[in-house]
Design a binder for these strands. Structure first.
Length: 569
RNA sequence: UGCCCGGUCGUCUAAGGGUAGGACAGCGGUUUUUGGUACCGUAUGUGGGGGUUCGAAUCCUCCCCGGGCAACCA
């Protein structure tokens, strides 16, 4: 052993894998399983967010990697909060992310099985009906540092318990009057083993089983058994379920079920946002955002509406890794993944957000010239488009500066810049109104500097995007900033709403765009394929769901990296 | 103050007794008709103390720090 180097046989070198893959490799190597089956188990009480995307890529990714499969199972054991609206959105989001489940299942599919499991525990003297109030139960539960004590109902006979439990099912008792508890150990150091509740009475309508049931199993009594019924080999959940694992195993052992095993990983936390479904719901209900799919939301539907691609989200999930330590991922990684994908697929277009007029004084009156510009320099197969140029254009207001520092590469009096895909121009004059605001910039162009056939020898440091005033169309552009002002709103003192970023949305209601966007929109309407854009020198954009051919509306997916802005900080 | 987890660059994540590596972020360059992209370079890390060992991020031990656990939520 000593002295042998790991490099002597490269094929023996371990490929880096996360701890779940190590577990699976071992299970497979030891013959514990021949293949694997995982499951993604959302509760249909809210929309999926980027944290769920991590869980989805972990579960489905493992299923794929090992040639196994993954079930989609809705954990619908609490009818009060659950709804088919959420079921539908969850299915859509999982598929949009690019995954296909083997079976679509519901914990509620197993209500009858679960009931029988409960009867078995009762017959085996391992469960009892407790008539105590929830306060009494809590009082007898003890604390993490002090053991609990037995309920006075703990010694009921199996017959009595079975009778009571069947009558609970029959609807003889009101909500909260009785529960079924597992009989384990009131002095266990694990609070969850202190005779946990496994069935409660809820006279509530269930989104799938309707009014068929008035007793519902708790998470602990449903999840593991559902896994076992489906022969799930690896039941992967987040860290907060760690202490549930002992209970999970107890049920499987006592009920003699398929030995599914639970493993826990650290959930995703993303900087400058929140992941709590409850808080997300509050943002929606209190109208701090436009809905679950508001482009500022960390929901899958929000990211989709904003223009994130499934590929970029998958890549993000792959890069953050899977481990057991708490984490707070820098949102810049998500943005990097978006840019990385979008750079290769986004169509380049020119849009001027905050326009100022620029007149080329030596342009032949009435002349319109068609210029060619590449749709995507990263992908020659996307070809070129024609852009009309007639000597009077809009440029961005901040692409001009009257007193410019040396490092400023854009327009200023006497300076020359390239107009993207057009000519080099030199600024000669500025027109201002009474308040000193620039109303018109006057330039000359250099006829021999035409893009692609430049013989002028003039070197322009900067290149500006522009739109012909005559041909421009008006569009609405929405830019987004982080939803919260602080890195970790969940950790902050007081109400998380106090940390909402008031400037998370900037609307440009009348931006000027090149007319190609109209053609694109028509094409998209016909093909159903909505293109991703890069508005040059601005960022990546995607048509909003509210966009129509009469009024195009674009969401900023993510801005371009901006080293100039950084220099000026 | 009980039980259970965890602690490696700023942020994530590898290294399974043998050179602490990668990514993002940062910084500095080169190229560029996007201050984009691409490419190159660069700084920054094993929570602390004791052990075991020729050798420790890795094994043992004590301590420190962070998280979870007292819903008829999941």
């Amino acid at each position: 052993m000593s002295g042998t180097k790991k490099t002597e046989n490269p094929s023996e070198e371990r490929a880096p894998r996360n701890f779940l893959e190590e577990i699976i490799d071992n299970d497979l190597a030891e013959g514990r399983h021949k293949t694997i089956l995982t499951r993604f188990p959302p509760e249909p009480n809210g929309y999926l967010h980027i944290g769920h995307a991590k869980s989805i890529t972990v579960n489905f990714g493992l299923g794929q990697k090992y040639g196994g499969a993954t079930n989609l199972r809705f954990d619908d054991t609490n009818p009060i909060t659950e709804d088919t609206e959420y079921v539908d959105s969850i299915k859509q989001d999982v598929q949009w992310l690019g995954y296909q489940w083997k079976e679509e299942l519901y914990a509620s599919d197993y209500f009858e099985n679960l009931f029988e499991f409960a009867i078995k525990l009762i017959r085996d003297g391992l469960a009892y009906v407790d008539d105590s109030t929830s306060e009494e139960i809590a009082a007898l539960k003890g604390t993490p540092t002090r053991p609990g004590s037995d309920s006075p109902f703990r010694t009921r006979t199996p017959d009595e318990n079975e009778d009571l439990f069947r009558r609970m099912r029959a609807g003889e008792f009101p909500d909260g009057s009785r529960i079924l508890r597992a009989k384990i150990d009131m002095s266990s150091p694990n609070m969850l083993m202190r005779d946990p509740v496994i069935y409660r009475i809820k006279h509530a309508h269930h989104h799938r089983t309707g009014d068929q049931w008035c007793i519902y199993p708790t998470y602990d009594f449903a999840h593991g058994q559902s896994d076992a019924i489906e022969n799930i080999t690896h039941s992967i959940c987040t860290l907060e379920f760690m202490s549930h694992r002992e209970l999970y195993n107890w049920f499987i052992e006592k009920l003699e079920l398929f030995p599914s095993r639970q493993y826990e990983f650290a959930r995703l936390n993303l900087s400058y946002t929140i992941m709590s479904k409850r808080k997300l719901l509050q943002l929606v209900n209190e109208k701090h955002v436009d809905g679950w799919d508001d482009p500022r939301m960390p929901t899958i539907s929000g990211l989709r509406r904003r223009g994130y691609t499934p590929k970029s989200i998958q890549e993000f999930c792959a890069r953050i890794g899977v481990a057991k330590r708490d984490n707070l991922i820098d949102v810049s990684l998500l943005e990097f993944c978006a840019r990385e994908d979008l750079n290769k697929i986004a169509l380049r277009r020119m849009v001027v957000f905050d326009p100022v007029k620029l007149v080329i004084t030596n342009w032949p009156k009435g002349k319109v010239e068609m210029l060619e510009s590449e749709n995507n320099p990263e992908d020659a197969t996307t070809g070129e488009r024609s852009i009309a140029f007639n000597g009077t254009i809009y440029i961005e207001r901040d692409d001009f500066m009257e007193d410019a520092p040396k490092k400023y590469f854009r327009l200023s009096p006497g300076a020359s810049v390239r107009l993207k895909s057009a000519y080099i121009i030199t600024c000669e004059d500025v027109v201002k109104d009474d308040s000193g605001t620039v109303t018109e910039i006057r330039c000359v162009y250099h006829p021999d500097s035409r893009s692609g056939s430049d013989t002028s020898g003039i070197k322009a440091k900067g290149t500006l995007h522009w739109v012909s005033t005559e041909h421009a169309i008006e569009v609405e552009v929405r830019d987004y900033d982080r939803l919260f002002r602080v890195e970790n709103p969940a950790e902050e003192e007081g109400d998380f709403l106090d940390y909402v970023n008031p400037d998370s949305l900037t609307v440009f209601p009348k931006a000027y765009a090149e007319p190609a966007l109209i053609d694109d929109a028509n094409e998209a309407a016909a093909s159903g394929k909505i293109p991703h854009y890069q508005f040059m020198r601005k960022g990546y954009y995607y048509a909003d769901t509210s966009s129509t051919s009469d009024k195009l509306v674009f969401n900023q997916t993510v801005g371009l990296r901006d080293t100039w802005a950084k220099m000026n900080k």
